[in-house]
């Protein structure tokens, strides 16, 4: 095995329902995947942050009904990067078109909305959004730290 470089071609798909209690299962699966695929800790933590932010947003805001919906997370190591794809069939929402939060405002008047997306934008190397087959598809990528 190429130490620290990750195992090229490793893949995992995780499906969850729109319930915040499902996050624990997703994070455990992410940890297993990262351990097995040789993903370094910094990259694994960035992925955990991205999943926490995006899945909590989708579960809390994406569905207008109270039905159960399935959200799909695909993880893959591609060309020395961890790639994450999150698909949901909620209402159309491009997170990367949202305004950047006001980071300079004082603690008393600070708006928190948008902070999670701001964090993910800054911590990941690449991000994109598409609306495909009535699904929101967010793709994120972070280069592995060569150990």
């Amino acid at each position: 095995m190429d130490e620290g470089g990750g195992i090229i071609g490793a893949e995992m798909q995780i499906q969850l329902s729109n319930n915040l209690n499902e996050l624990a299962v997703v994070m455990a699966a992410l940890e297993d995947f990262c351990d097995g695929a040789g993903v370094d800790m910094g990259t694994a933590q960035a992925a955990e942050l991205a999943l926490d932010e995006f899945l909590s947003n989708i579960i809390s805001y994406s569905y207008l009904d109270s039905e159960e919906h399935t959200i799909t997370v695909d993880l893959a190591v591609v060309e020395r990067a961890l790639q994450i794809k999150i698909s949901d069939n909620g209402m159309p929402f491009n997170p990367f078109e949202q305004a950047e939060p006001e980071l300079e405002s004082s603690i008393e008047e600070r708006e928190i909305g948008g902070l999670g997306i701001h964090l993910v934008r800054n911590i990941m190397d690449e991000y994109s959004y598409a609306r495909l087959d009535e699904c929101n598809v967010v793709t994120l990528s972070k280069r592995l730290n060569e150990g």
Partner: peptide, 16 residues
């Protein structure tokens, strides 16, 4: 070991 924006909100709320 780990904090997300939900955790930052907690720290900010306590600070306020």
């Amino acid at each position: 070991e780990f904090v997300s924006s939900a955790g930052l909100r907690v720290i900010l709320r306590v600070a306020k």
